[in-house]
C-alpha cells in the first residue's frame, strides 16, 4: 500500500475531518486503490508540456475600482449559527 494510515490521518487533519476506526480503514483501502489507478499518469512523458489550469484562453478579467452597495448586515449574518452585536461568535481563537 502506497498511502499509510499515518498519511490518511495527516490528510484528514489538514482537511479538518475526524475519522473513526472504521472510516480510517475504509479510506485507507479506497484511497490506495484510487491512487494506484492514478499512478498510470506517471507513464506519460509530459516533459515541456504546459499545464492547463483553465479551460478558457482568457487573460485579464478585471473590474473597475467602483464601490457597490454592500449587503445589509442582517443579510450578512442571516445564516450565521451564532452572532452577537453584529459579529459572528466562534469558540475562542488561540494565538
Amino acid at each position: 500500500m502506497k498511502i499509510t494510515d499515518q498519511e490518511v490521518l495527516h490528510v484528514a487533519g489538514l482537511s479538518r475531518l475526524k475519522l473513526d476506526e472504521h472510516e480510517l480503514k475504509r479510506f485507507l483501502r479506497e484511497l490506495n486503490a484510487i491512487v494506484d489507478y492514478m499512478d498510470m499518469l506517471a507513464q506519460i512523458d509530459t516533459a515541456g508540456v504546459p499545464e492547463t489550469v483553465h479551460a478558457t484562453m482568457l487573460t485579464r478579467a478585471l473590474r473597475q475600482d467602483i464601490p457597490e452597495r454592500s449587503q445589509e448586515r442582517a443579510a450578512a449574518l442571516a445564516n450565521a449559527p451564532s452572532q452577537r452585536e453584529g459579529k459572528i461568535v466562534v469558540p475562542r481563537v488561540i494565538e
Binding site: V11, L31, L41, P50, T52
Partner: peptide
C-alpha cells in the same frame, strides 16, 4: 481527502501538476 492528498507537500508534482499537463495533451 483525495484532493488534499494530491496537493500536499511532496505529491503536488506527481499528481496535480502531472494531471494538469496530461489535461493539456
Amino acid at each position: 481527502m483525495l484532493g488534499t492528498y494530491v496537493l500536499s507537500a511532496g505529491y503536488y508534482d506527481a499528481y496535480y501538476k502531472k494531471a494538469s499537463q496530461v489535461r493539456t495533451l
